[in-house]
Design a protein around this nucleic acid. Structure first.
Lengths: 343, 343
DNA sequence: ATTCGATTTGCACGCGTTTGCAAAATTGCG
DNA sequence: CGCAATTTTGCAAACGCGTGCAAATCGAAT
């Protein structure tokens, strides 16, 4: 029943008694329009309820002001925060967020073309890596791509990533300094560089310090996985006395098994350290010591890289590492010389 | 260094020795193309690396295949799941998600125009309500708008919503049947219909059953708020023996204060019931009894309403209510006749 | 008034598609 | 082989806007 047809700049021009260019100019920042026609156009636009068609605009300007954001596992509170942070920062610089949520890591190669068809100005990809074919496609299209919490050897796309290996080493130091003898690592999903790097740093440093090689279980980055992994660890004759989990939600699962199911005391019987710094880690029920990823700083760096490359697509790719920060809490014994840990 | 200029259908046409229409037709479902030219075009497109420009396409077809999704508080695990569910369902029907994350509820009136400029096919708005002026704008533009977990009296826009009042009544029944004498309600943000309706149902039913009017505190829908509200409740001389929280994360905060800080026993000293059914409510550290919102069902209903109205904008608005489900766990005493609760 | 420079305006083309329409090609059938 | 019925194809006009360029307007100084 309502005015189905959208009102176009043509209509406004007619109403205001000016040319289409005039209305276009009053709606583009820093174009040459006299104040008088500007007011006239604004008035006409107001009465007609006109607002410029962003789709048509991006067709001519070749800039969509949209960036593709592909995310896996929004449900993980860490990535929820990442999403929130990115979306706030993008919106604040006038970019829209075209969200692509992928279930399986493999879906990325299908998601990306879909994004590119929408002529996004750039792409941010979290927690997964794109095939080199895809990377090439983007590079060829001059579309900046930023990997978040992944990086690639062949430096064809930019990345910002927590220094996972260093963080892993730091946890190893912490455990050894606190006098732990029998460590364990609960890994995330297989084949993810985040989990692998954290594990590598942890194991390497443990070896350097002459500690026994730790037990390793897999928890698939989810609560139930962490819980089950801890279950397996404590079903052994020789359970660990210190556990490093590749992320916080697994650590929460492990803690629940340890404290609520096995009735063990933390950190007297076993120390637990997580990774991410999600809110729940600070709650009284958990008091989880964790390696916090500095989300705001990471997303800021990513934005910086992205915006620079949108402005000048010729800029070479760049990868930045951000250190994790130890947040000591009650779930882990601390060495006498508290916070001596440096790799 | 790379081919900066995008490859267009013109290029493919030239390469394949056909007209632009031909290539357009091979890329649009169910258009009239002979198999031979179709193959030729496909081949040419492949060698040139062509993929149709969705922006240009939506300019002519008047369908962007994008829906605007405005969300507040993605960080709340309940809404994270809602977002994930919507994005999966939208993608599965070939729609892209244009995400708008708003910090303050008031920002919606700025967000919506921005979305409309991008010619989204429809809009889903969670946990906030739009001004009637905005609603009118959308109606006039023929853009379907679905409110999620909000509804409006003047039935100008569609909505799907948990039956919050009924759920509130159900909790009241539960408490009274379990023999609780002194109830309390921890509210969410002021002026949100979700919190108000839950409160109203709870209070009304309590009154109907002849119980003393409950204490009411506000927790602003966040963990810290729930914690602080519980702190206030238990600083009194006459603390409650049953608390209904307007959402789960506040309930977790309340539980942590009750159990970990005050050292009280749940449910012996006090029963706690939450709302939403977030994952953490089922963890051994909490075992929170809660009124679960049936996310999948709700998003399905919303999708149904949305897609129908995208297909036919003339369809009248429609609002559907979905019942919440009681998930009994250890945090609340149960009446002898377990689950007798019906409003 | 006249001239010159600065500012504003309109024209028309382009952005990369889709699509109605009519011409061309193909098919089936006698 | 001829003719009509059916596909297939290309042309050209949209879709709604930005923008270079030249014409028009304005302001001020002479």
């Amino acid at each position: 029943m309502a005015g189905r047809k959208a009102v176009t700049s043509q209509d406004v021009a007619r109403e205001a008694g000016v040319s289409r260019s005039a209305v276009s100019r009053t709606f583009t920042e820093g174009a040459s329009v006299s104040e008088r026609t500007r007011q006239r156009v604004l008035a006409a636009a107001w009465t007609l309820g006109y607002s410029p068609n962003a789709i048509a605009r991006s067709l001519t300007t070749q800039r969509s002001h949209m960036v593709g954001l592909v995310m896996a596992d929004i449900t993980n509170p860490f990535y929820a925060k990442v999403l929130e942070s990115f979306s706030e920062k993008l919106q604040s610089v006038g970019q829209r967020v075209l969200l692509f949520s992928i279930a399986k890591v493999h879906d990325i190669d299908q998601a990306l073309p879909a994004l590119l068809q929408y002529q996004v100005d750039g792409v941010i990809i979290t927690s997964t890596v794109l095939s080199s074919a895809m990377a090439e496609t983007c590079a060829k299209a001059g579309k900046p791509v930023i990997l978040f919490n992944r990086y690639v050897r062949e430096t064809t796309t930019s990345a910002v990533c927590t220094d996972n290996a260093a963080a892993g080493r730091q946890v190893a130091n912490l455990f050894v300094d606190a006098g732990h003898r029998r460590c364990a690592f609960i890994a995330g999903t297989a084949d993810t560089s985040t989990s692998n790097d954290r594990q590598r740093g942890f194991l390497d440093r443990l070896a350097e310090r002459g500690a026994t090689p730790p037990l390793v279980e897999r928890g698939d980055y989810c609560y139930e996985g962490g819980f089950a992994a801890a279950e397996r660890l404590f079903a052994r004759d020789d359970p660990p006395d210190a556990i490093f989990c590749a992320n916080d939600v697994m650590a929460l699962g492990a803690l629940d098994l340890i404290r609520r199911v096995r009735g063990l005391r933390v950190p007297e019987d076993v120390s637990v350290v997580g990774f991410d710094g999600v809110d729940a880690s600070g709650w009284p029920s958990y008091e989880l010591t964790t390696m916090e990823q500095q989300i705001e700083r990471m997303t800021s760096e990513a934005m910086e890289i992205l915006l620079a490359r949108i402005a000048d697509p010729a800029l070479p790719p760049e990868t930045r590492f951000v250190p994790a920060r130890l947040v000591p809490r009650a779930s882990a014994r601390l060495p006498r010389e508290m916070l001596s840990a440096v790799s």
